[in-house]
Amino acid sequence: MIEVSGLRKSFKARRKRKVTSVEAVRGVDFAVQRGEIFGFLGPNGAGKTTTLRMLATLIHPDGGDATIAGADLRRSPAQVRERIGFVAQAGGTYGQSTARRDLVHQARMYGSPKSTAKGLAEATIKAFQLDEFADRRNSTYSGGERRRLDIALGVIHSPQVIFLDEPTTGLDPQSRARMWQEVRRLRDQGMTIFLTTHYLDEADALCDRISIIDAGLIVAEGTPSDLKREISGDVIIVDLAASDTAGAPEPAAMLEASKILSDQAYVHSCETIDSTLRLYVDSAATAIPQVMRALSNKEIEPGAIESRRPSLDDVFLAKTGRTLAHR
């Protein structure tokens, strides 16, 4: 449904009177199947939004090709526009307008005559449960209500593909869960969904397949479970901050502990994140006693030790050397 190859975009940035070129997207390839929820996971500034804006015909790519719902992005952007919906992160409504007025107008922009547009608006209001506030000013909506209107506007013409830029950023947990429900409902209706997110749990729970993007390049792609399976075994997190002082440990002590544990045969890799060490091992059950022993031999007392299954953050860490969580 979406095929992208070698898509690139750089921006001119002015810094200290010098014009430099910043490569926002440095050649990305991916394919999205029909009826799939496909996620672009990455930190802020990774190139997620730039990619999305290129695919939505808002900015011209510097290079590369894309086909969306059978239309060529570079040769026939007008066709692409007819077949897609796009919901920007910032939304896109006047505060003094109302949901109903905006929905009717949106349907008419896609070519519906007035009476059809009114019917479509009414049906969309029902489907997204906007009834309660559809005739109130947009500026009176809660964050979740406004987000639902944004998405309703994006799909009123039943596009084949819908692009959602960070659909749940800034929403409370309840509204987020609701939004996930709406996205799944759209997928069940046969739409293909391409969304960006910097939430690990969102990519994990909502997306059928994800691409991890960092610094303008795709570093991993697959289903969330496949990606996590690449990180075999368990993860052990050793918190070196003493539980009673709550203070950060000495950098020297961190370094020593990291060195000791990296040297252990059963530790595949060891990453330092703030005051914790993240160890990748085959089995946490057998490794934890050995970790304790190795540390106490050097008279290092960890504040806490826990184990868990690998998460997408571990995948991100393994691919980029950085962590996505706690940002």
Binding site: A78, R81, A88, A90, T93, Y94, Q106, M109, Y110
Partner: peptide
Amino acid sequence: AAIRQGVITRFRVTPL
């Protein structure tokens, strides 16, 4: 103001 509120972007991704 319309650009800042994202209204122009929303219009520009439609066939309008």
